[in-house]
Amino acid sequence: MRILLGVYAVEARLAMQRQAQYRGAAFISILGFLMEPVVYLIVWRLVTTATGAIGGYGTEQFTAYYIVWTLVRVFNLALAPGAWDWWVQSGRIANDLLHPVDPFHRNLASMAGAKVVWIAVWVPTAAFLVLVFRPELSPNFFQVFTFFVAAWAGYVIRFITLWALGLVSFWTTRAQALVEVVIALELLLSGRLVPMAVMPPWVQTVSSRLPFKWTFQFPIEVLIGQVSAADVWRGLGVQVAWIAAGALAILALWRRALRRFTAVGT
């Protein structure tokens, strides 16, 4: 365990240094995914200006929600399942399998390290959004602290989910359709499109029983104060349960997947 923690620290530090060289590229990427929340924000501000608050979300709450959304999106970035197609089909994964540390740990640590640079370059874009949309956001220390815990836990859950989805590439080279469906479900049920409070009650029930909401909406609502302190602790508990369940699933799937993998190389 101590050795593994050391590996995490080294991988994260290396990734951070590597990503720091490409901070301009990271800034451009963040600018790129800014349009999505800005559009949602404009649409829902228009709606709530006409109708008043919906499910506890008025204009101010929607504004704060979609601005914090941009930070949680940065936390949420994980290895895309599409990368697995290339990784497995090209046989390049064979190199990583020779390494004494499991690629899961190395990738989880590496993306977490790169994220630190991403979060740093996110700050100016957030400042721009705050200037344009003037959100009312004044979290206390408890909200800020639990937000960071929930956001990192959300990253781990999403990383595990996408890793499990990527493992399908060991069985079929055509996992793309499945990935598209899962990503669409995530869009609708995670709070990325709209907070679940806006959705019909049955969608809210489905959403609370899947992992997606705990990676996206939960951290946002913790920071903007849409959940009570008791629900914050309960939500963190649900996140831990999803991490444990996901880790067990990966353990079971990974060995079976590797048995199917053969590579011929030079």
Binding site: A25, I28, I42
Partner: peptide
């Protein structure tokens, strides 16, 4: 040479077209 990161910007702007631009603020 490398446009992969800039791709996100142009794709994001295209996706903004999913809603009528008349509902957006003047700057957008």
């Amino acid at each position: 040479v490398d446009l992969r990161d800039a791709d996100q910007i142009i794709n994001g702007l295209y996706d903004a077209g999913r809603w009528p631009i008349r509902i957006y603020p003047f700057w957008l």
